[in-house]
Design a protein around this nucleic acid. Structure first.
Lengths: 166, 166
DNA sequence: CACTTTATGTCAGCCTTGTTGACATTCCAA
DNA sequence: TTGGAATGTCAACAAGGCTGACATAAAGTG
């Protein structure tokens, strides 16, 4: 296994099994940190990570349908429905029957839901901001590039759509 | 939002809420891709992500104790024990009583365990390698820097220890 | 030696969040 | 009018977290 060049330098240095393993472990440990703050907040309110995901994407795309959310989250409708039901009952999410297509439910955060969303995303953004500051802008660009390349193509599409949409 | 690109320059470009949100979403979607391949393999064998994590770190630090593993994985002993019991019963992991301290159990992969580890890590490394290739070496360095900065300090310590150890 | 602490394992029970399968309702569209 | 899509709901189940309680053996400490 000998190296050939790559725009930017010796790419092989980063493709040894050892380097790849370290990348894998970095993802594992970093994801734990990534979810730690919201998890704490949510646990205090009797919610879990699934509720966070729903709240995040409803906030991100107000009026999104249940089916859209299903696709983005990659879970079954039964699983999502359990979470949505709780959020609706607790008055954090509002489900409006579609006007054009009355089968669809359009989801919105209530003021209380938006408040929780702010609390969660403020905490999560703070950690992300701190990491970005430490690593610097060049690192951030690389970070985003690698993450995007790691996604499944379908998810990359959804991710890109969110980018433009919001 | 006026931005000029300047290497090492105005880091503020990367610290807008919008940029931070995109980073958060990128982590979410990328982690899904990151675990997708091992998840498929494991599901076929009746195992889950928890088994993968145990196998990974036992392979990474052969002879590690249950307590070490507990700390790194950040779960309760009951939870880990359930997983280890299955792996030991199935002949993928061997638990050896410590020689110096006979209370400790030192964990090793059997040949069968090592074979599964190779299968899992080959798949996961392939995805990582592909992402690295697309993004390029500079991006990889940034990726790793941001991930490390995102970890909780404790986990960063464990991560660093793994780096040197293996 | 007696006592305490540590490392591990195990039982029982609970929660969240995922799954499948079956079935009802509503309503758009061919 | 009929088929299919979108949604909701019920039931049952599994993985994998958690807590609490308890047991055992070994090591450390007075």
């Amino acid at each position: 296994m000998m190296a050939e060049g790559h725009p930017g330098g010796e790419s092989l240095l980063f493709l040894t099994d050892e380097q790849l393993r370290k990348g894998i472990e970095a993802m594992f440990f970093a994801y734990r940190g990534f979810t730690a703050d919201p998890d704490r907040i949510l646990h205090d309110q009797g919610y879990g990570r699934a509720h966070h995901r729903a709240i995040h994407f409803i906030n991100r795309s107000p009026g999104t349908t249940v089916n859209n959310l299903l696709t983005i989250l990659g879970v079954t409708k039964q699983s999502l429905n359990r979470v949505l039901r709780a959020l609706i009952e607790d008055g954090l999410v509002e489900s409006r029957v579609g006007t054009r297509d009355k089968r669809e439910r359009h989801l919105h955060l209530t003021e209380a839901g938006a408040a929780l969303e702010r609390e969660l995303s403020t905490a999560q953004r703070a950690r992300m901001r701190a990491a970005y500051r430490v690593a610097g802008p060049e690192a951030v660009a690389g970070f985003r590039m690698v993450l995007e390349a790691m996604m499944d193509p379908d998810m990359r599409r959804h991710f890109a759509a969110l980018k433009e949409g919001a």
